[in-house]
Amino acid sequence: MARKKTDRIIEGHDLSFHYTVYDSEGNPGERRTALDGVDIDVQQGQFVAILGHNGSGKSTLARHLNALLVPDGGTLYVDGYDTLDAGNVWKIRQSTGMVFQNPDNQIIASVVEEDVGFGLENQGVPTADIWKRVEEALRAVGMWKMRGRSPNRLSGGQKQRVAIAGVIAMHPKCIVLDEATAMLDPGGRKEVIRTVRELNRTENVTVILITHYMEEAVFADRVIVMDHGKVVMGGTPREIFSQVEKLKSFRLDVPQATLLAWKLKQRGLPIKDTVLTIDELIEALNHGAAENDLTQPVSR
């Protein structure tokens, strides 16, 4: 039950986790390593993106952050609570909320506002406070007008925003989005990313975004790359995406703008820094063009 005093919301050291694979008769077979000596440190208020291809262990790590899974080896403190101590489970789940991949499978109630209130009901919050916090949360994600709707009538992006509202109504210090944008269309993805960035900026909520869309990781303060259950790279988006070849070896892409800039640079165009967004690319090309007087300025 004891809480460690720390300013780091997540503090994991040498985490390991194994899945047991069962054959068709239900006998335990080989043990597969999902996490292998992972060290992770996240400061309160940071926006961290975790990248990795399928099977890299990033979702397993996400489930540890909410104590849905506990490590086989190593220690993990979430908000100062040891996840291995079963008595801490409910405190950890209150301080770290999770948004999952499939929007349909995580909405429990048949009315938007009731779903947002679900977590609060579980915590035993008094009725009047539930309503207040549900309103705050729905306004924060821009879904207050839809509070009386059935979740079945919402778009994917709206459903994920409701799921996020359900999490932030519980006033967590940290939100983990476990591939929450994977099943959405581009519009829905933008909606969700805009919402979490806003929360991160205004409410100082720590955001851990697990994704395989590189464009989303660009906005993060820090990017962690995982492969085969290990953390293989870490740093700012600029540092990470400058290593195009190394990322490719982990079967990951870089954002399109970055890739284009990198390829142009290889062909000898004078682009100095790593480019992350389309705007930066235009800037760089304009700049290069002006300096070398090669072409007319490029416009969008």
């Binding site: 909320g97 429990i108 009901e121 579980n122 519980m170």
Partner: peptide, 18 residues
């Protein structure tokens, strides 16, 4: 999993929104 992540632990100690 989603219910557990949101702190669902049966009917004991639950309050009602409505």
């Amino acid at each position: 999993l989603a219910m557990e992540a949101r702190g669902y632990h049966g009917g004991v100690g639950r309050t009602r929104m409505k």
